[in-house]
C-alpha cells in the first residue's frame, strides 16, 4: 500500500512538477539552489525546461514560416489570424502606451514575440508529460532581463541620450533632490524587472503546485478524495485562462514600463 502510494506520488510529482526534484525538495529548501542563477547548478536546473524552450522556439519558427506568404500583401487563410493577433498587440497594447506610431512602431515585433513565447510556454506546460518552462525562475529571469535591455536600449535608440537621462532623472528637480531621485528611479527599474520575473514564475509554479496537491489527495485518501479530482479538473481549466492572462499581463506591464521611459509625457 505504502509502496504503491509512493510510486504514484513519484509519478504525479515527476509529471506535474518536473523542477529537478520531488515535493520534498521543494519544501526543504533544495530549490534555493534554483535561485542561484550565477551558481554552478544551472545545468541541473535546466535539465528539462531547456527542451521546452527549444520546442517553443521551433513552434514559433514554424508559425513564422507558415505566415511568411502574407508579408507585404493582403493576407489570406492563416495570415488573417496572424494579422488579427499583430493588430491586437499593436492597437491594444503598444500604441496606447507609447503615444502612437512615432515611438511605438519599432517596439511592436518585440511585444508580439514576447506574448507568443510566454503564452505558448504556459499552454505547453499544461499538456501532460510536458513541463512548464515559465515555472522556472531562470527562464522568467531571462525574459525580464530582455525587458530590461529593451527598456534601456530602446529608450536610447528612440529618444537619444536625452530621453534616457530624462527617464532616469525627472526634469525640474531642485539640485539636492537629483541624486536621490536618480537612485530611486534606478531602484524602481530593477524592482520592476524583479517583479516581472517573480510574477510570471510564481503564478505558473503556484498553479502547478495546487494541481499537484489536489491530485495527491487521491493517493492519500483513495476513493474518498474523488471530489478533489473534480476540483483539480476545474483548476486545470482555470490554469488555461491564467496561462493566457499571465502572457497578457507580462506584455502589458512591460509595454507600460517601457512606454513610460520612451514617452515620458504620457
Amino acid at each position: 500500500m505504502q509502496e504503491k502510494l509512493n510510486a504514484f506520488l513519484e509519478y504525479v510529482d515527476h509529471h506535474v512538477m518536473h523542477h529537478g526534484g520531488s515535493l520534498d525538495a521543494l519544501t526543504h529548501q533544495t530549490w534555493l539552489k534554483d535561485l542561484e542563477i550565477l551558481g554552478h547548478d544551472i545545468l541541473a536546473v535546466f535539465h528539462f525546461d531547456e527542451f521546452m524552450v527549444i520546442l517553443v522556439g521551433v513552434l514559433l519558427g514554424a508559425l513564422a514560416w507558415f505566415g511568411r506568404k502574407s508579408i507585404g500583401r493582403i493576407p489570406r487563410g492563416f495570415g488573417t489570424i496572424l494579422e488579427k493577433y499583430v493588430l491586437f498587440i499593436r492597437d491594444d497594447i503598444v500604441y496606447p502606451n507609447f503615444g502612437g506610431a512615432k515611438h511605438g512602431r519599432s517596439f511592436v515585433p518585440f511585444f508580439c514575440s514576447i506574448f507568443l513565447f510566454i503564452a505558448l510556454s504556459n499552454l505547453l506546460g499544461l499538456i501532460p508529460l510536458f513541463t512548464c518552462s515559465t515555472g522556472n525562475v531562470n527562464i522568467t529571469a531571462a525574459l525580464a532581463t530582455i525587458f530590461l535591455g529593451v527598456a534601456l536600449w530602446g529608450t536610447l535608440r528612440q529618444g537619444g541620450a536625452h530621453a534616457l537621462v530624462h527617464a532616469l532623472l525627472p526634469a525640474g528637480l531642485p539640485g539636492p533632490m537629483k541624486p536621490i531621485m536618480f537612485f530611486m528611479e534606478v531602484i524602481s527599474l530593477f524592482s520592476r524587472t524583479f517583479a516581472l520575473t517573480m510574477r510570471l514564475f510564481a503564478n505558473m509554479l503556484g498553479g502547478h503546485v495546487v494541481l499537484y496537491a489536489m491530485v495527491s489527495l487521491t493517493a492519500i485518501f483513495g476513493a474518498l478524495a474523488a471530489p478533489s479530482l473534480a476540483v483539480a479538473i476545474c483548476l486545470y481549466l482555470f490554469e488555461v485562462f491564467v496561462a493566457l492572462l499571465q502572457a497578457y499581463v507580462f506584455t502589458m506591464l512591460s509595454a507600460i514600463f517601457i512606454g513610460m521611459m520612451v514617452h515620458p509625457q504620457h
Binding site: A202, G206, Y248, V249, M252, L253, I256
Partner: peptide, 25 residues
C-alpha cells in the same frame, strides 16, 4: 477591464512574493 487586470496583476505580484518567501522557509 484593462485597468482592472493590471491592478489585479500588481496586487497578485506582491501576494506571490509573500507566498514564495513562505515556501522558501
Amino acid at each position: 477591464q484593462t485597468a482592472m487586470i493590471i491592478a489585479g496583476a500588481l496586487i497578485e505580484g506582491v501576494a506571490l512574493f509573500a507566498v514564495v518567501v513562505c515556501l522558501l522557509k
